[in-house]
Design a protein around this nucleic acid. Structure first.
Lengths: 237, 237
DNA sequence: GGAATAGTGTCTTTGAGACAATATTGC
DNA sequence: GCAATATTGTCTCAAAGACACTATTCC
């Protein structure tokens, strides 16, 4: 039966799976696709696919991203998460997958017909069931994203430029899942070297005082880091 | 010619490569094997091998570790580093490799005949040339190990129990490559919750005051972390 | 004025880094 | 005593957290 519907069960395939996060409103969302074929037909899964012959894993991840969203890769931060290799993780055969973590600003509707933004909380709390071992991959990706916010400046990649300190803070609050003190957060961020570049402009929101606008600075790391450990004492649900 | 000496160039293979670090004397060492076959015959390489059919990557890494050293896996900390996938990284064909970082106490002589402990500095400074992309993998593993010392308690895994605070400090100094203040280091480590458990015993060295002995505590994370960023101002070479 | 958000200032505590001083061994 | 390492203690500074207070908008 090899080569008709399934894959050769003796062969070893390598795929990439993408965990693309974006913040919409006050919720963290991930890009999921509804499966049209068995196994797990009708369930949700991470976007992904097999690595092709001449391709690196990074290239395969970027290609899959383009196939699912209309984005040029430039606006999305993509980084390798880790490999998952349980022999029975895919009933079709032996597939080792390398997961990628992607972060982007409030992204447009995905172009692929079965793809949609889904609240991460729905997956964590079991309202949305994921195929394969994808729920575990998503949890790992979330933990990585939370840690990245501590040490790097990627939070700003979630914000369409220009952005306010309040918008940046909301990214941290949504990804970490608890509130931060606005004044301490501002002090921390504005003092960090080359993180925020003031544009001199202001944004006038529907309610409240207008806020200064910033662009991403050149710094890739946030020094000193903004660690959750202490802040999380507050209101972690 | 497929199946005689080389591998099918169309096939996709997955291997694991191990970067096993240990501290011997005042030097950080890595386990390297001298290659007996082409390509890169005579050069050094990371120990590793192909992943077998029913095996996870973790199991493959543990198996390779046992084949190269006489250790039960229990004494060595093994964690996945990342995957490397440049299509031409192995001239024999398409091989995606997943690298593992291993850390252990001053380990015994490896059992495999061509395997030997080699100073990491020899690789970094070009005196030892590694096959494939293994030099890059080793550099990535070193960076990961340095970061792990900041946030976790794995440094104690380098120390045969029981150990002194001075021995633990030497681990940090060797891996990070610069000296630390003994008194500040002691304060930091002894205050960290469940990191060091005093045995009540003492060790009498050849020279100097005897030192209190400790065992590893139950904590896996070092909170607050001991960050290099500030300390490295000192004497990083 | 009131609600809402932005932004400033201040007080306190924690912890890092520098470094002095003392302790205990072998020689 | 001297060399070497362990251990304690102290001073200072940076930064985090709590929180009061002011500023600016829309209604």
């Amino acid at each position: 039966m090899i080569g008709t519907t399934g894959r050769d069960p003796e062969a070893l395939a390598v795929s990439v799976d993408l965990v693309i996060f974006t913040v919409r409103g006050d919720e963290l969302n991930a890009l999921l696709v509804e499966r049209g074929n068995e196994p797990y037909r009708g369930a949700c899964a991470l976007p992904g696919g097999y690595v092709r012959a001449g391709e690196t894993l990074d290239q395969a991840a970027l290609r899959e991203l383009r196939e699912e969203t209309s984005l040029d890769g430039g606006r999305v931060h993509l980084e390798q998460l880790r490999a998952y290799s349980e022999p029975d993780r895919d009933p079709r055969g032996r597939v080792i997958t390398v997961a990628y973590l992607g972060l982007g600003p409030d992204l447009p509707r995905p172009v692929a017909p079965r793809a949609a933004w889904t609240p991460v909380a729905d997956v964590l709390e079991g309202r949305t069931v994921l195929a394969f071992d994808h729920a575990g991959i998503l949890r790992d990706a979330l933990e990585r994203a939370r840690t990245q916010l501590e040490h790097t400046t990627i939070a700003a990649r979630f914000c369409p430029e220009p952005f306010t300190v309040g918008e940046l803070r909301r990214i941290y609050e949504v990804v970490w899942g608890f509130k931060l003190d606005p004044s301490n957060f501002r002090r921390k961020m504005t003092r960090a070297e080359a993180f925020l570049e003031p544009t001199g402009e202001q944004r006038f929101p529907e309610v409240g005082r207008p806020a200064a606008l910033y662009r991403r600075g050149s710094a890739r790391y946030l020094v000193p880091p903004l660690l959750r450990s202490a802040a999380a004492r507050d209101a972690c649900p």
